[in-house]
Simulated scan of single mutants.
Amino acid sequence: MYSNKLKSSNYTLKIANRLIYALFVITILTGCENKQKDFEQLESQVEKEYKKIKKLSYDVQNIMHFADGTIWDNQGSAIIERDENDEIFGFSFYGIRNDLNRALVYDNGEAFQLYNQDKKIRIETPDSHLLGTPGGQMIYEDIFKLEEEYQSVDLVETDSTYHVRYKFADDTIYNSTERTKELILRHHDLLPIYVKTEVQPEVGNKFQSIYKFSNYKLNDSVQSSIENKKRILNEYEPIVYDEPAPNPIIGKKIPEITLPKLFEPETQYALNQKKLTLIDFWEIWCGPCIQSFPKIQNLNDTYSDNLQIIGVVTEDYDFAQDLVKKRNANFLNLRGNKDLKKEFRVFGVPNYFLVDEKGIVLHQYVGYTEKIESDIKEYLSKQIKSKPKVMM
C-alpha cells in the first residue's frame, strides 16, 4: 500500500513538473510575442511621425572610438530636408563641424565642401564618402528611419523615452562580429537623442560610433534652409587642383632598403630581390586592403616561381600579425615606416608597385585592379620570349 502511494505521489510530481515547464515555455513565448508586437507598434508610430517631418535641424556631438584606440570627439550642427527623389541619401543636407569651421552642402545630387575660414569651396563626388568629411560627420544617415534587417531587437519604454537595441548578424566580408545598435527615442516625436553603434573588427579594439542630439527644430521652426546655404556658394573661391604629376619613382631604381620582417623583426629583408616583385602597402584599418588579401594571396600562389610579393605595413604591428594569421595570408610581410611611404609617394592605401628584377619600378596601382595580374602576365611572357632558344 505504501508502495502504491509512493508511485502515485511520484506520478503527480511528474505531472506538476511538466505543467510548470509548459507554463514557463508559454510565458516566455508570450513575452517574446508581446515584445515583438510592441516593437511593431513602435515602428508603425515612427513611420507616421517621420512622415510629418519635411525639414529638421539639430545640434550634435559625434564621438568615434577606432580599433587602434584613437578617439574623435567633435561637435556641430545640421539641417536636413527630406527629398524622396534623392537616390543616395533620401534627403538634402547641410552639416558643419565647429572646431574646423568646415561645412558640407549636399542637394539634388551635387556636393560642395566649404572651407569657411578661407572662403574656399571644393566640389565633391556625390556618394556615401561625403559622410566622412568634417561637415558630413554631423549627419546621421538614418535620421528618417529605423533598421529593417537585424537578428533581434529589444525594446524598453520609460516615462519619456523608448530604448531600442538591435543585434545584427556577423559581417562575413570584413569578419566583424558583435554588431549592435542602441537608440534612445523621445516619446513625443520619436526622434533620436542618442545613437550608439558598435562593431568588433577582426583585430584591434571595438569600433564605436556615438551621436548625441539636442536642440531639435522641425519644419517651419527651422531657421534656415539648404537653399539659403547654397546662395552663399558664389561668394567662395573654387579650389582648383592641378593634374597630379606622375610619381617620380616610376621608371627609377628603388633604393637599397632593408626592412624588418613582420613576424621576425630581428631579421632584415631587402626590398630589391632581383626578381619581379609586387610591393603591397596596406594597413589594418583599411577595408579595401583586407578585401584584396585573397587576390594578392592568389597571385602569390599562381606565380610563386617568377614573382615575389612583399606586403608592407607601417602601423600596429601586433594587430597586423593577428590579421595576417586570421586571413591565412602567407606572402611575406615587412615592417615599414613613414620615411619609406614618403620615398614611394604613398599617400593612401592600398598602394601597389610592380618592380622588375633590376629593381626598376614599372607600375604603380592605387587600389587593387585586375591590371596588376595582366601586367604580371605580360612581363613574364616577354621574359620567356626574350630568352635565347637552346639549339639541339
Rank of each mutant, 00 (worst) to 15 (best):
M1V: 08
L6I: 15
Y11K: 12
Y11Q: 14
Y11V: 05
T12M: 10
T12I: 09
R18S: 14
F24W: 13
T30L: 15
E33M: 13
E33W: 14
E33Q: 11
E49P: 02
K54V: 08
S57E: 00
M64D: 09
G69F: 01
T70I: 07
N74G: 09
G76E: 00
D83H: 14
E84R: 12
E84V: 11
D86R: 11
D86M: 08
I88A: 06
I88W: 07
G90Q: 07
F91K: 01
F93Q: 02
G95T: 01
I96R: 09
I96D: 04
D99L: 10
L100C: 10
R102D: 10
A103G: 12
V105Y: 03
N108T: 06
E110F: 09
F112K: 04
L114C: 04
K119E: 11
H129K: 14
L130I: 11
L131F: 07
T133R: 06
G135E: 02
I143L: 00
L146N: 07
Y150I: 05
S152C: 06
L155Y: 03
E157P: 00
D159K: 14
D159F: 10
S160C: 04
T161Y: 04
T161V: 07
V164W: 05
R165I: 09
Y166W: 06
K167S: 15
K167A: 13
N175M: 09
R179C: 06
E182F: 09
R186K: 13
H187C: 03
D189T: 00
P192N: 04
Y194W: 12
K196W: 10
T197F: 08
E198I: 06
E202D: 15
V203Q: 00
G204F: 01
F207P: 05
S214Q: 02
Y216W: 03
D220G: 05
Q223T: 08
S224R: 08
S224W: 04
S225W: 05
E227F: 15
R231D: 15
N234L: 09
Y241V: 11
Y241P: 06
K253S: 13
E256Q: 14
P265H: 03
E266N: 13
L271A: 00
K274R: 15
K274M: 09
L276F: 01
L278E: 04
I279K: 01
P288T: 01
Q291D: 08
P294K: 04
I296S: 07
Q297L: 11
L299A: 09
N300A: 14
N300E: 11
T302K: 15
T302L: 07
S304T: 11
D305S: 12
G311H: 02
V313N: 08
T314K: 11
E315T: 14
D318S: 15
D318V: 13
Q321G: 07
L323G: 08
V324P: 02
N330H: 14
N333W: 03
R335L: 11
D339H: 11
L340P: 04
L340K: 04
K342P: 11
K342T: 14
V346T: 03
P350W: 04
L354I: 03
L354Q: 06
V355Q: 00
K358L: 08
V361D: 00
Y368C: 06
E370F: 09
E370Y: 12
I372T: 01
I376T: 00
K377D: 07
Y379N: 08
I384S: 15
S386W: 07
K387G: 02
